[in-house]
Design a protein around this nucleic acid. Structure first.
Ligand code: MN
Ligand code: MN
Ligand code: ZN
Ligand code: ZN
Lengths: 142, 142
DNA sequence: TATTTTTTGAAACATTGTTGCAATTAAAAC
DNA sequence: GTTTTAATTGCAACAATGTTTCAAAAAATA
């Protein structure tokens, strides 16, 4: 029995194998950039919006995907590349690049979010580094 | 004739002085933390939602306020403290702190967003530094 | 005060977030 | 392989937010 990559990932997180989860995970596996709920809906066709919403929440809680914060009003998600990511404990500390031109958001593994000393009285749980600009794709095209 | 601070700011940006604009600007002037559209609606009472939306857009374009990116799905705005901020050209490079506890987002002028060299083929227009954690207010309370 | 130009408010529509609940399905037990 | 159990789905329903259009109202200017 030939287990696909997505099935394996779901198994590893002890998540039930369902059509929606496989499809969504396949989409993440086959895309370089972070995907919004809308991106996914378009690719999925007639899938249920609410189920997709819950799938994303489940994946994020499981440590399969993480939010790619890019300063837009749309939530985007990308695959966690670190297998250490566990339920409600992510280890993705890389920057996210958002192209002002094409609107795509990508993980930049080479650039890490800075580690900061908190101002007095504050404590820091996580930092996000968001970069805006033009991606290499759009650079050529302009 | 006694011009209020908000009136002066509007004048300086060559914006028409209207009730909504004065009220909204007054709210920003009297609040330390970044405000969401919802925060403002609550404070304004019976104000028109659409007008508020457009007021915020106008203020941002004028350089009066800037988005306080905090990784939540809600857009928040804060007053630009740098008078250099011009229409569609902001000079706010500070970090934003988001408290996981109370949900408030504040500008951290003391911490600057890092200046990065772009990956090959990319160009950078702006970087945002988002810090999550617990604010001094919530720290004591816990 | 009259004229011009901008802003407002209402309607209308789209997108996204979120819960409750019954029907369906996956995994586990037999 | 069938039955049981437990999780997931799909739908209805609602809230919040984003966004445009257009006529009425208001602000700046003459
Ligand atoms: Mn990422
Ligand atoms: Mn700020
Ligand atoms: Zn691009
Ligand atoms: Zn707090």
């Amino acid at each position: 029995m030939n287990m696909s990559a997505s099935t394996q990932l779901l198994k590893a997180q002890q998540l039930r194998i369902t059509d929606m989860r496989i499809k969504v995970l396949d989409l993440f596996l086959s895309h370089q950039e972070a995907l919004s709920q809308n991106d996914l809906e378009n690719s999925l066709g007639e899938a249920d919006r609410i189920t997709l919403y819950r799938t994303l929440r489940t994946f994020e809680e499981s440590g399969l995907i993480h939010k790619a914060i890019d300063g837009t009003d749309k939530q985007k998600y990308a695959l966690c590349k670190h297998t250490q990511c566990k339920p409600n404990q992510h280890f993705d500390h890389h920057a996210h690049f958002h192209c002002d031109d094409c609107g795509k958001t990508t993980c930049v593994e080479e650039i890490a979010a800075p580690i900061l000393s908190p101002p007095p009285g504050f404590s820091i749980s996580k930092t996000h580094l968001v970069i805006h600009g033009t991606c290499s794709n759009c650079q050529v095209a302009s």
